[in-house]
């Protein structure tokens, strides 16, 4: 009896997935999910590193002090509001106000990047502070400027130390993409919701969706492990 029900449910799903071509949408959704997470993380790392470097500048230079205040405000805003709110604000308020026309996918990339930057900056700041200050002093004593010393010596060592945490941030981003349908973007989650809605049958699509997310995250975890091993080359004796 119950087996029968599952069979019906599965057939319904399979029909729309293959025969009615819904798999196209799923693949597209998967693409968008990955694009938003990868591009978001890239922006997050670049912007987050910049924020972190500004935050750890020693001394009481007034210009730096001002920049530090702005960075704190930025980080507090993005960590203090839900991502959905940031997405809605970006899509319906910020970009229309400054008059930029962007696809909902692009808006998602930018907002995810800006959000991620706030979290990455805190991770990176910890990483920068974990690098022995002697490394900075040695660079500066040679005559290298502060930015060059940071970029060539301190940041690379910090990145190596925080790679596992950055990996977590990437996984978080992948999972968070499931909210992008709020601004009309189609991601993995939205693709499966559409399938479910098309035959009023949600159980199978949502189970399949969960499996795909898990596989995706496991795959990323594996990639991070490999990268980590590579970066640790300079630790080998």
């Amino acid at each position: 009896m119950s087996q029968n029900i599952w069979e019906i449910k599965w057939t319904k799903f399979w029909t729309s997935f293959i025969e009615r071509g819904a798999y196209h949408k799923v693949i597209e959704g998967l693409e968008h999910t990955v694009i938003i997470a990868v591009a978001g993380l890239m922006i997050g790392i670049l912007l987050g590193t910049l924020i972190a470097v500004i935050k750890v500048v020693p001394g009481k230079n007034p210009v730096m002090g001002f920049l530090k205040k702005i960075c704190n405000l930025y980080v507090n805003f993005f960590r203090g509001t839900p991502m959905v709110v940031q997405l809605l604000l970006g899509y319906y308020v910020l970009f229309p106000l400054i008059g930029i026309k962007m696809s909902s996918l692009m808006v998602c990339v930018v907002i995810f990047g800006m959000n991620s930057a706030a979290y990455v900056s805190e991770i990176m700041r910890g990483g920068l502070l974990s690098v022995n200050f002697g490394q900075t002093e040695a660079g500066r004593a040679l005559g290298l400027s502060y930015p060059v010393t940071m970029m060539r010596i301190v940041v690379p060592q910090a990145v190596k130390n925080i790679l596992p945490t950055l990996g977590n941030e990437f996984i978080t981003l992948i999972k968070e993409t499931s909210i992008v349908s709020f601004v009309g973007a189609i991601d993995l989650c939205q693709a499966f919701r559409n399938i479910g809605a098309s035959n009023y049958e949600f159980m199978v699509p949502y189970l399949v969706m969960a499996v795909i997310y898990i596989v995706l995250v496991l795959f990323i975890t594996y990639l991070i492990k490999i990268t980590e091993r590579r970066l640790r080359a300079s630790d080998k004796r």
Partner: peptide, 29 residues
């Protein structure tokens, strides 16, 4: 930064750049 180019410093804790090879440590600056 200009003046320091002419003033080398050697530290108690060596402070070689951990992320660079010996060659890159020497050639970077």
């Amino acid at each position: 930064n200009l003046a320091r180019q002419k003033v080398g410093m050697v530290f108690q804790q060596f402070n070689l750049f951990e992320n660079l090879t010996v060659m890159d440590n020497i050639t970077l600056a």
